[in-house]
């Protein structure tokens, strides 16, 4: 049931994957301080699945996510989102791609403090100059338990509520993929569990593709699949993980 392997065996083809990379490389600095953040990373994330990227600090997992989401550019290699090759896209095209086809949930500072919860949720749609699907909006917000919190500003919401607003915002545009960067890192365990369950449900019930970076084995256990990274390389993966198996795999990395 749980397999660990050197290479991703079930890599979907880039054209059909939610997101994928081909020999992605990125380095920071030069000379002695040169750091290989990514080394020839080939990875593919299937549609409708919840995938976690795990690894110790400095393993390159955040860099991989930033490159996948079009927030950062790699030195070489290719990146696809929903079948679109985003390598070499100009800033303007990347920006449009982000607001139309990608959703984000960050660890902290997810919301614009001057806007209400509702305005925050609608922000990507508003930025694109479009109008939101009101039925879908109601469905998402009530599923996330935010229906009575929409008029509040971020500082009037608890940490868990703030993260749920961020999840609602990410889901609203029905993006090709939702990226989570330690989405529960700043939450207590109860609020964290709530947000993770919500993410899992959106993958299962709504078929939303989700890619989450985390270093918390418990958080990773909510995913369908865990991709392990170390020193900028993919070093293995787990299907249908639980907290123990993830912990075990991580311990091996440390060894």
């Amino acid at each position: 049931m749980t397999t660990t392997s050197e290479q991703s065996p079930a890599a979907a083809r880039p054209a059909t994957a939610a997101a994928a990379t081909l020999s992605l490389n990125k380095t920071y600095g030069s000379g002695d301080t040169r750091v290989h953040a990514l080394r020839d990373v080939d990875v593919s994330f299937e549609q409708g699945r919840f995938t976690a990227i795990m690894g110790p600090s400095g393993s390159g997992k955040s860099t991989l996510m930033h490159c996948l989401a079009g927030l950062d550019t790699a030195d070489s290699g290719q990146v696809w989102i929903g079948g679109t090759d985003i390598t070499g896209l100009k800033d303007k095209q990347l920006t449009r791609l982000r607001r139309e086809r990608v959703g984000f949930v960050f660890q902290a500072f997810n919301l614009v403090p001057t806007l209400t919860a509702e305005q925050n949720i609608l922000l990507p749609v508003a930025l694109a100059g479009g109008t939101a699907d009101r039925d879908w909006f109601r469905q998402v917000t009530s599923a996330l338990g935010l229906a009575d919190r929409l008029r509040h500003r971020p500082h009037e919401l608890s940490g868990g509520q703030q993260q749920r607003v961020a999840v609602a915002r990410a889901l609203l545009t029905r993006p090709d993929v939702v990226f989570g960067d330690e989405p529960t890192g700043n939450l207590d365990s109860k609020a964290g569990a709530e947000v993770l369950s919500l993410l899992r449900r959106s993958a299962v019930e709504m078929g939303q593709s989700i890619i989450m970076v985390t270093h918390d084995p418990v958080a990773a256990s909510y995913a369908d699949r865990v991709v392990l990274m170390n020193d900028g390389e993919l070093v293995g993966e787990l299907d249908h993980p639980d907290a123990d198996s993830v912990l075990g795999a991580l311990a091996k990395l440390g060894a």
Partner: peptide, 10 residues
């Protein structure tokens, strides 16, 4: 954050 969510530099 706004840039990540799709605000262009312009």
């Amino acid at each position: 954050l706004l840039r990540a969510l799709g605000l262009t530099t312009g």
